[in-house]
Design a protein around this nucleic acid. Structure first.
Lengths: 161, 161
DNA sequence: GGGTTATAGTTGTAACTACAACTACCATCC
DNA sequence: GGATGGTAGTTGTAGTTACAACTATAACCC
């Protein structure tokens, strides 16, 4: 005898019923949906707090990486924060235009080295106040204990991902 | 007597030493940095799996929301996934161009209602296979137990955020 | 009913992100 | 030493996101 369709059985050929069952499963479980929503919420919060300093959360993250590793090649910087090389290229370009970063030739004729300028260094120091207030508010928004969950999640991300 | 600067004291006036101390604190603790990195990693993974179906993770999330609530106003749909209204407007525009969504007038002369087309419905059913494989891989990438952490994190996000 | 305020959605602008394709350079191997 | 393949970074293109400013409509208030 043929098993009758179970709830959650979404292996049908594409009618509206199958679509709703698939949608329900995705809505309940999708990890990307949750990660994206969390990211948007926190990014807005940090960008709000950083706006008075004229820097975004993306830019501050790169300046921070630079501050700890300079001089550093763009590729290395990008891998540290999980950014694709072309994305780094464009972000660094904007920060050079802003006067926060300079590039010098690496020994290798194809590579470069990035450095913070004095203005970039000063910006990190000043924006730290804004970051701290955002961090406080973020801890409040995320219910108790969840900040550590995020830390654990992030730690699960290998250097290769 | 004056207390000498403590490690972690980054209240100075902006020199390179203060910048590095601030950078170290941010690098170690920033919640937004972690959320953004996690989001980028997962988004790439899901987009890879969905590419054969011609849909992105953002679009699938909206189609899923639509599938469960239609007909629905753009604003309601956006609040459900934490997207700003202008972002919804543009994403929906692309999906209308793709033939997955249609809009009809709401009773209220300023509001609209969105519906899935048959093509949109079919797409959700088909892309479900791709989503499932991405979801499996995502669970592997995130070390054991961390998927639940993400679920808990997301649950901490109020409807107002 | 006419002015004021609030709500729904769009548009201008700009940053962020990534894939694909490209240039330039280096290393290796034959 | 020239072909071959790999590495570093840029550019073309396009989707994602949000703030500010805008239009249009509705609701309220007097």
């Amino acid at each position: 005898m043929t098993a009758k369709p179970q709830p959650g059985d979404v292996s049908g050929s594409g009618g509206p019923v199958e679509a709703r069952a698939a949608a329900a499963a995705i809505a309940q479980e999708c990890l990307a949906t949750r990660a994206r929503r969390l990211d948007r919420t926190l990014t807005r919060l940090y960008n709000d707090a950083l706006r008075p300093y004229g820097v975004t959360s993306t830019q501050l993250a790169l300046l921070v990486g630079l501050s700890l590793q300079e001089p550093v090649r763009p590729g290395v910087l990008g891998r540290g924060v999980g950014l694709e090389k072309s994305t780094v290229s464009r972000n660094v370009g904007r920060m050079i235009d802003s006067g926060w970063v300079t590039e010098i030739d690496g020994q290798d004729g194809r590579s470069k080295l990035l450095r913070l300028t004095d203005a970039g260094s000063t910006l990190v120091s000043r924006a730290y106040k804004g970051w701290r207030s955002a961090q406080e508010r973020a801890k409040t928004v995320l219910s108790q204990g969840t900040a550590e969950s995020l830390a654990r999640l992030d730690a699960g991300l290998g250097a290769d991902s």
